[in-house]
Computed example of a mutant assay.
Amino acid sequence: MYGHATDGTGLCQSCYAKNPVSWDDCHRCGAHERLHGHGLCHTCAAADQITQLLTGPDGAVRAELAPLLAALQASAPKAVLAWLRRSTPRALLACLAHDTGPITHEYLDQLPHHQRAVQHVRSTLVAAGALERRDEYLISLERSLAKALAEVEDPGDRKLIRSFATWHHLRRLRQNPSNTYGQIHRARRDIRAATQLLSWLRESGTSLATCTQSDIDRWVCEGPWLRHIARTFLLWAVAHRHAHNVEIPLPAREDETNGIGQRRRWELVRRLFHDEDIDLADRVAGLLVLLFAQRLSHITSLTVDHVTHERGVVSLALGSHPLEMPPPLDRLILRLLDERKGLAVVGQIDDHPWLFPGAFAARPITSKQLMHRLHRLGIYVKPARNTALLDLAS
């Protein structure tokens, strides 16, 4: 049943050729649709597979898995069937069925399966209320920090990197209730650059405390331009007297005023206003960039509470005060409130606060995901924002 099917029937190509699937009545629920296979509709087939995978050795689904079973059965059946055709999710669900004890974040953290499959299960349980919500971005940073520290051989370097990561990044991030992918990526990048700099200094016969500006210049010039990223760590080290009279200059940047032509900008705006073939969320996000110069990190953090609709006026809180939305953007935002749907494969729920839900249940889309979606529409965020900022300033 899990052969090389390409049309969602659950049959291999050979069996499908002999038994072409057509619209019929499901043998179990009587639903009239294009059946998945073995006389069952997609809903019944998905329920069967989920129950079978989550059934333990005693022939029953243990109580700790009841929320997961209910959430998976409530998910879009075609998406669930496509997800279960992969070996990793099936192995993960079977492992959960055969283990004992409560399903906690700590238990999921130590599972050896592919992390993306674990993330889908975790977000499904969080969305169902079976697990408490936690900052997965921050957890991933702490996990990668532990791995990076384990690879540092010198105890003194390891202590420096831990201090830098803890007091410069983690202290701030732990106080933030809603960290973004970009924030975590920058922190992880700074830690990696610090590790590489300390390792290079030690291989060069010096250390952070004894290195000179000529050593730092050589570090920057001999390597790729990405070595400038260690500037953040070096500034912290000098400020805390771990290094003395050294710095990494800012790299030469492209002209920050580069933008797109006004004609191109308004062509994109008109297309987003009127093209119903474009995903509604992409239309609204693109218009917020092109008209109001919004950062993607801000757009992805918007919730339904940021939208107000009073006396026929739609306002969106993009800053300290709600801003009235012009037509037809106001109507698009109201439609998005009603029609917003996440991209989660499993466990997707409608009861979530995000205006732009993402690929995992009850979590917003990431800035990186949204950037790729806008790129497909020909909207490059930085030039578009620059042009919008210049227009707003004028």
Score class of each variant (00 low, 15 high):
351 D>G: 07
195 T>I: 12
209 A>S: 10
259 G>R: 02
174 R>L: 05
304 V>M: 07
166 T>D: 14
223 G>I: 00
36 H>G: 08
167 W>H: 14
187 A>D: 03
65 L>N: 11
54 L>Q: 10
3 G>N: 09
313 V>C: 03
69 L>P: 06
53 L>I: 04
305 D>P: 00
257 T>I: 08
126 V>I: 14
134 R>Q: 11
156 G>W: 13
209 A>W: 01
130 A>Q: 06
278 I>V: 12
254 E>S: 11
12 C>W: 03
163 S>E: 12
177 P>Y: 01
25 D>P: 02
358 G>F: 02
272 L>F: 10
357 P>L: 05
10 G>R: 02
85 R>K: 14
140 S>Y: 03
273 F>L: 04
110 Q>G: 14
288 L>G: 00
348 Q>N: 11
355 L>I: 05
20 P>D: 08
371 M>D: 15
74 A>E: 06
178 S>E: 07
132 E>H: 15
292 F>R: 13
111 L>M: 12
205 G>R: 07
263 R>A: 14
82 A>P: 01
271 R>V: 09
54 L>D: 10
191 I>Q: 05
341 K>I: 10
76 A>M: 10
312 G>K: 04
1 M>W: 03
197 L>G: 02
173 L>S: 01
304 V>S: 08
45 A>V: 04
278 I>Q: 03
80 V>A: 10
331 R>H: 13
63 A>D: 14
121 V>I: 10
266 W>Q: 14
218 R>M: 09
254 E>T: 10
220 V>I: 13
213 Q>V: 05
